[in-house]
Design a protein around this nucleic acid. Structure first.
Lengths: 354, 354
DNA sequence: TTTAGCACTCTCCACTTACGAGTGCTAATA
DNA sequence: TATTAGCACTCGTAAGTGGAGAGTGCTAAA
């Protein structure tokens, strides 16, 4: 990350190239910069500076007689050292706050709406990842026996397990139950599990329920094979992180995606939502804004895109990730502010409503 | 729907044009038909027949010296009277059954998977609409008070309401509760509501909970303003039908969608998922396969698409809709069979697992 | 009623050409 | 020494051209 301290003109020219390229999506020539950003020097001087920037690897020419285009390294330098975060206008802040305030419905509905808000305000793709349940703390477990209706053949009961997490997330899950457990047994299991497991993380609980010795300690003499099996099943959630994203069709208005072969790989990737979680190589969601530029993204289809992401919290715990996917040629200052502000508002919403 | 009983040759030629066009997506000439479907007559004769079909409005020419392309009317005739449903191969049937059998997880997960299966097998877009809750029968209501944590300021409790439907669908919903209702009150309300409302449709229940006289009859002397408000809130679900769809990027391989301006409106429409429910003008999902061709679809962006849909059931009740969206130039016999068979398998899955 | 033959139309593709934008280099200038 | 003006050069884009190929409709013969 050694930034070789660009002199003033180089910085100015690099910024001009990036800004101009962001607007037009076409290579930027020296005369354009002279006219648009009149920085008191002639086009020829700017040309010299551009040649320097090219040598540094910050800009490049698509062909020998074209203008300059920023490289990924150029964007990296811009994002890390040059740009200053753009304060959102009050109007935009209000817009985000109002839209978030008017949300209601369950956790999933809220998340879905927020991905929509993000995409509408950014004009790119907005996404929200649901929290990993692994780290979530159990607040309450409720077991509701479901009368097996008239399935008198091969009767095997079912129980609806409702897991309420400390963060406010609710997860429900239908669990098969052996017929030698009565409703009374279920109530008893429920009481014991609530007593012993509330306050622990799901991950921890799953470890416990795999471990017969541990289970024995909890259930004391009460533990039978069917109780153990039932307990295991209750907490065997498949942990999928769900991904909500919205605004993919905004990419159709981006000139660099006008050809089908450019946009197709991106859409194919987006359809495999589960892979998107893999975009964030970080093992845990990390606080603060992250910017991933172009081919720093490890998936095919994302070479021409950048991702700006942050995480949202509830009661201080990191929950999931939100962010925006846009073309590499992106208005970084604006998008960074949008993602940052939305993550904050969202965290507040959860603390109030969940 | 007057089909003017085409003579044998006209039918044969129309079928040939449709089949051939389905494969190549280019206008079909008379010589191509002569060679490919060698129907014992010369190209010139076929040309004459094609001119007749054109007069009937079943085929058309993109430009004066091109081959023929089926019109929507042509497809309509084909779908309604000419084509015979293609029996799926055992291999495909098995594939669908196996994929469905290996599903687990909640209702939403299953539905999401099925839209994926549909798209993979059809190579078009597969979609599944969740049931309208309106018509669903309540099987069980559970109210779980959530301790308001340390929100000692402006304390207002919350209750997690879990609604289990007869169909097996579970819906949960966080309901605010006035602080003059104790946990004991909540339990009492729960008992009363279960006694009086189980077996009724949600729609019916919502009517009742709006109607104070009715509520009074149920709660007898117990009804206070806060009990009434709480009851109303418990059943005030926003009824959104959720839509899962998958395989949109399959359209990138369809030649008629190779230009961005063709595919863009479609994707923009698909992103407004709520509108997709409106594709089915039918007030209630209707049993049996329906085929909606091209501009019979009322939304912009769907002019070049057809929709094949049917509905799935659980315990005999119609629940939601599943279907496939493909280009108008679609292998109707195959797709109709896929949708039909998948709907059947899906219904079976629900009856077993929910 | 069907067929063969023929003139005509239209699209598609490869090819050429002209234009304009932008560069790098060199020599003059402050 | 840094900057500037001028100029030759390069390359992509757009517009125009011509031929090949596919397919038609029409007419006259079988």
């Amino acid at each position: 990350m050694a930034t070789p301290t660009l002199d003033f003109r180089k910085r100015e020219v690099l910024e001009a190239i990036i800004e101009c390229y962001n607007q037009t999506a076409t290579p930027v020539g020296s005369r354009t910069i002279e006219r648009r950003y009149g920085m008191g020097v002639s086009a020829a001087t700017i040309r010299n500076t551009m040649a320097d920037l090219e040598e540094l690897g910050y800009v490049t020419q698509p062909h020998p007689s074209a203008g300059r285009v920023p490289t990924e390294i150029g964007y990296r330098v811009y994002v890390d050292t040059l740009m200053e975060a753009e304060e959102l206008s009050n109007k935009e802040k209000l817009l985000i706050q109002e839209r978030c305030a008017s949300l209601d419905g369950g956790f999933e509905e809220v998340i879905e709406q927020i991905s929509k808000i993000l995409s509408e305000i950014s004009h790119y793709i907005g996404f929200v990842l649901t929290p990993e349940l692994h780290g979530s703390i159990l607040r309450r477990l409720e077991l509701i026996p479901i009368d097996g209706e008239d399935d008198s053949t091969e009767y095997q009961g079912k129980v609806l397990a409702v897991l309420l997490m400390a963060s406010g997330v609710v997860k429900n899950h239908i669990v098969p139950v052996s017929k030698d457990l009565t409703d009374q047994d279920i109530r008893r299991i429920s009481r014991i599990l609530n007593e012993k497991l509330v306050g622990l993380s799901l991950q921890h609980i799953q470890q416990i329920s795999q471990d017969t010795a541990h289970l024995k300690a909890i259930f004391d003499t009460y533990l039978s094979d069917s109780v153990a099996a039932f307990t295991r099943n209750t907490f065997s959630l498949n942990q999928e992180i769900h991904i909500y994203l919205d605004g993919a069709s905004n990419f159709f208005s981006q000139p660099e995606f006008l050809q089908v072969d450019k946009i197709e790989p991106l859409f194919r990737l987006l359809e495999q939502k589960e892979r998107i979680a893999g975009l964030f190589s970080l093992p845990q969601p990390t606080a603060g804004i992250q910017v991933v530029i172009g081919s720093e993204n490890k998936y095919e289809g994302m070479e021409m895109c950048s991702v700006v992401h942050s995480c949202y919290t509830s009661r201080g715990d990191v929950m999931g990730t939100i962010g925006v996917i846009g073309p590499t040629r992106m208005q970084y200052p604006r998008i960074v502010s949008i993602v940052d502000f939305t993550a904050q508002v969202m965290s507040q919403v959860f603390e109030h409503t969940l």
